[in-house]
Simulated assay, not measured.
Amino acid sequence: MKDEADREPARDPQDLPRLLVSREQAGDAEGMAALYETDAILDIGGGQLARGRDAIRTFYAELVAAGQRFELGDQRRAIVNGDLALTSTRLRDGTVTVEIAHRQGDGTWLWAIDQPSILP
């Protein structure tokens, strides 16, 4: 697996979905979790939330191990307001993912809240 410093950062909130899918397809759960703020929240279904990057990493590691495969959908243009952005993607089955990204001090973007419809 790549070291975090070797991974491509999200320089635009529009980069986040593509990076998530490419890292998932590469089996890089650590890299997937690195797209989230350290205290981010990910809806993992069934009314449960993964809170924090460690919990998100664990969740994605289980998905990768189970052979889950993500696909790129029709990404909507991010709505940006200062250091916050709303990202969303319409998937092939018509469902939509919704995320809130936060611009970091170095200008890169990480998700703070993720409501993915692509997860079981």
Score class of each variant (00 low, 15 high):
113 I>T: 08
89 T>S: 01
55 A>I: 07
29 A>C: 10
112 A>Q: 14
86 L>T: 11
10 A>N: 02
50 A>G: 12
95 T>P: 08
41 I>A: 04
113 I>L: 15
100 I>V: 15
56 I>W: 10
27 G>M: 10
99 E>F: 08
20 L>K: 05
33 A>L: 06
6 D>M: 08
76 R>Y: 09
96 V>F: 06
99 E>H: 12
75 Q>M: 09
84 L>G: 00
77 R>M: 07
106 D>L: 05
94 G>W: 13
64 V>R: 15
95 T>N: 14
7 R>W: 00
17 P>D: 00
101 A>C: 12
110 L>G: 04
4 E>P: 11
39 D>F: 03
104 Q>P: 09
99 E>N: 03
120 P>L: 00
31 G>L: 02
91 L>F: 13
51 R>Q: 14
19 L>W: 06
97 T>M: 06
6 D>C: 03
43 D>C: 03
44 I>Y: 00
108 T>I: 13
65 A>D: 14
90 R>N: 10
8 E>G: 01
112 A>W: 08
118 I>P: 10
44 I>W: 01
56 I>H: 06
20 L>C: 03
9 P>A: 00
55 A>W: 04
46 G>V: 12
8 E>V: 09
75 Q>V: 12
110 L>Y: 03
51 R>S: 11
71 E>A: 11
34 A>K: 03
28 D>A: 07
25 Q>S: 11
63 L>W: 02
103 R>W: 06
40 A>W: 04
42 L>W: 06
117 S>H: 14
71 E>D: 14
39 D>Q: 08
55 A>H: 10
94 G>I: 13
79 I>F: 10
96 V>C: 10
10 A>R: 03
33 A>F: 04
60 Y>I: 11
119 L>S: 06
64 V>T: 11
102 H>A: 11
46 G>C: 05
99 E>A: 15
45 G>T: 10
86 L>W: 13
51 R>D: 02
120 P>A: 00
18 R>P: 07
10 A>D: 01
109 W>G: 00
47 G>W: 05
120 P>G: 00
116 P>G: 01
87 T>K: 03
5 A>H: 09
80 V>D: 11
52 G>Y: 07
38 T>P: 05
120 P>F: 07
35 L>V: 06
97 T>K: 06
70 F>C: 04
111 W>K: 13
20 L>F: 08
93 D>K: 09
64 V>W: 14
57 R>K: 15
14 Q>I: 02
58 T>M: 11
104 Q>H: 10
16 L>F: 03
109 W>S: 01
32 M>N: 07
4 E>K: 08
83 D>N: 13
42 L>N: 04
60 Y>H: 15
112 A>I: 14
10 A>I: 01
2 K>F: 08
